[in-house]
Design a protein around this nucleic acid. Structure first.
Ligand code: MN
Ligand code: MN
Ligand code: ZN
Ligand code: ZN
Lengths: 139, 139
DNA sequence: TGCCGCAATTAGACAGAGTCCAATTCTTAT
DNA sequence: ATAAGAATTGGACTCTGTCTAATTGCGGCA
């Protein structure tokens, strides 16, 4: 993911590729995520897109993030009991979660192998496999 | 964990073994968890302990669950973006999480091996490794 | 260009989980 | 029985997220 190349035009094309009507607000929200490539909460996104001057409401940020998740443009990360994080990295990967600072770091899934998993319950399919390594400062 | 043997006396001994002063409320809360051996939210615990007649406040349930987690009598499970679940099973294990029903099921960690994990960031220790298989109904 | 109809956005009320505090009630030791 | 510290409590409060009804924006078409 080339952060430098993430102009609003690039973001717009990416929205279209996912079948999303590229409105001004959606472009700003996607740009906030993809230009930084960081795990962000809805509040952080809201603050970022309204940094220069207010232009996007809280409702739209939540609507849009939900839309992005449904269309798999971004991914949800459930690690913090207080809030959901949105992840612009949709390649298979796992996470370190620093329980003290709240920092989330990616771990490439290509390097990792998980064996011995039991069969899924009958009639169920896997919707995702999340591996979270909770870390904290030594001693 | 023998559910049948989980009398209030057994629970009281277990609290003492963890250095927890066994008050009436704490015994009821621990009994709710250990007699059922199910993953429960704070609200579910609150409802259970007040089933017969009101005897424990919301504040005490939250205080007590936090105390139980700190003393490692129970474990937190972060899978549902809306609420924390408390797990009376403290043996190493992972979880299936049915994203449609909210059901949480244990997976014994003894059967599972995870390899290829990267080194922890400098100065950090692992506080826990959570593997969550999100599942949903087929088709 | 000017309308139309639908899609998207919005403010603000609302809901649910969890925290906090100061006042009260227990426990336990003396 | 008393006193001191520990635990409990109601209720206000915060925060994340949802909902709704009203408004605004936008693409297609005459
Ligand atoms: Mn948020
Ligand atoms: Mn709860
Ligand atoms: Zn990530
Ligand atoms: Zn469990």
């Amino acid at each position: 993911m080339k952060t430098a190349g993430m102009t609003r035009e690039t973001v717009t094309a990416r929205l279209r590729a996912h079948g999303i009507q590229p409105t001004h607000q959606r472009i700003e929200i996607a740009h906030a995520l993809f230009s930084r490539m960081e795990h962000m909460s809805a509040d952080q996104v809201l603050a970022l897109v309204n940094e220069r001057h207010a232009e996007t409401s809280k409702a739209t940020v939540y609507n849009t993030l939900k839309l992005f998740v449904e269309t798999r443009l971004v991914r949800e990360v459930i690690v913090d009991p207080a809030k959901v994080f949105y992840d612009p990295n949709t390649t298979p990967h796992h996470h370190f979660f620093d329980v003290e600072s709240g920092e989330i770091t990616d771990i490439d899934a290509a390097d990792i192998s998980i064996s011995g998993l039991p069969a899924l319950p009958a009639g169920k399919v896997a919707a995702g496999i999340d591996l979270i390594i909770r870390i904290r400062a030594n001693a």
